[in-house]
Design a protein around this nucleic acid. Structure first.
Lengths: 228, 228
DNA sequence: CACGCATATATTGGATCCAATATCCACGCA
DNA sequence: TGCGTGGATATTGGATCCAATATATGCGTG
């Protein structure tokens, strides 16, 4: 049973931003899943969600289908949808994808990055140092990475990267809550930015891969390595 | 207006394979889009599709939402959905993604490939030589690649790879129809398989990247390079 | 007392209905 | 004659209703 109060905060706040109820429900539920408000395995009763969002079951159904295509929820015919579980195996999967995509995006973007981009990235690192909330923290981390990739000029690639950065957030929140923030990650952010500023594509890509892999290893160890 | 006869072939053939109408419609429409039966830009009228599939508008709507999340169709609120357009820019986008993901999948899979896997890959190459139909051709090409990646043991990564192999098919069909099949591609398949058999991961990954990039360059040139 | 079967209930899947919005066309006016 | 406005029409978005299926409960029987 989902506590209605947990969701009411997310709901109705940015309702008017969306043109259709389906859009609204999809965005709110994605946010809820990625932020951990809806934990892995949580059953998603359509009627319950519909009343929580103040709509009928139909926008909920369409939103659930979209989230299914993004692997955030899983459907079982006639049995309902549940929030996709997190696991060590899935974390490794996401890590492998990030380690492949992010250097590719960076390599395309790097030559076109401007001084303003570097300044923004620097500022985001500083904000991360001061941010205690894990949720905002993940958001800042995502924006830092995306700032460096943004000039790649490949919308599809960037959408994939952002999607998997967000997916990784679900896991990083775990790590953050359990171990506190790892200062090594900030060192890696600085190193990455320095390599970018120097225009050294190979070093920058290496830094990204190391960064992703390090976080991934930490996580796999933390999650107990139940699966490869 | 969609010619109903174009779709009727796809419809009702494997209808019983699916447990829900939504699953069925989603699979059929994805197939239709990827195979080119529904070309880019084609308007997707819900009522029309519903009668074509012999269902109500609802499964169609849910299927369209799933396809939207996979970037195969585009929605405009209150204006309807259209099949996602193909373009030189999008082709380059897909090429960049493939060039990043496929070597990663291959590197994970390569050490675990068996003699049977190599034999299957070899057979698929041979079948490609004899296949005149572009549709079946793409299918064989996809299976060849996926055979080499299958042992990666990363379901999420493999799903992404397969998804973008399929997306690339939409473009390769173009190339095939206009230029005929390029024998160079088969040479590259042989070289790739040889490197895999030799267990040379670096060479194999290099071969994949070259293969993807070569096809991509051909395509970009053919599509006129309207966009980067 | 355990197991299997039948029935009851809850929940999803699918169809139909109504409302909201966009497009199209005609008409009037400058 | 060209442009803008207003209404008619088509199509989507959302709500409600019905059917199909899965789970749970309880009964009977071995």
């Amino acid at each position: 049973m989902i506590d209605p109060l947990d969701l009411t905060a997310l709901i109705e706040r940015n309702r008017p931003r969306f043109r259709t109820a389906t859009e609204f429900v999809e965005a709110a539920m994605r946010e809820a899943i990625l932020s951990g408000a809806l934990p892995g395995g949580a059953p998603l009763r359509q009627e319950e969600l519909a009343t929580a969002f103040g709509v009928s079951r139909m926008p909920v159904r369409e939103a659930l289908r979209q989230l299914e295509a993004r692997a955030l929820v899983e459907f079982n015919p006639h049995r309902g949808a549940v929030v996709a579980e997190i696991s060590a195996g899935d974390s490794a999967d996401i890590g492998a994808i990030r380690a492949a995509l992010e250097p590719a995006a960076l390599r395309l973007s790097l030559p076109r990055l401007s001084a303003a981009d570097f300044a923004l990235a620097e500022e985001l690192i500083a904000e991360m140092d001061a941010e205690p909330d894990p949720g905002r923290m993940g958001e800042l981390n995502r924006r830092f990475h995306m700032t460096l990739y943004a000039r790649a000029g490949r919308p599809r690639l960037l959408a994939l990267v952002e999607q998997h950065l967000a997916a990784a957030d679900r896991y990083l929140r775990f790590q953050f809550a359990a171990l506190g923030y790892h200062p090594r990650s900030q060192d890696e952010h600085h190193a990455l930015l320095a390599a970018c500023r120097a225009g050294d594509a190979d070093a920058a890509c290496g830094a990204v891969v190391d960064h992703v892999m390090a976080a991934e290893e930490q996580l796999t160890a933390f999650l107990g390595g139940r699966r490869g």
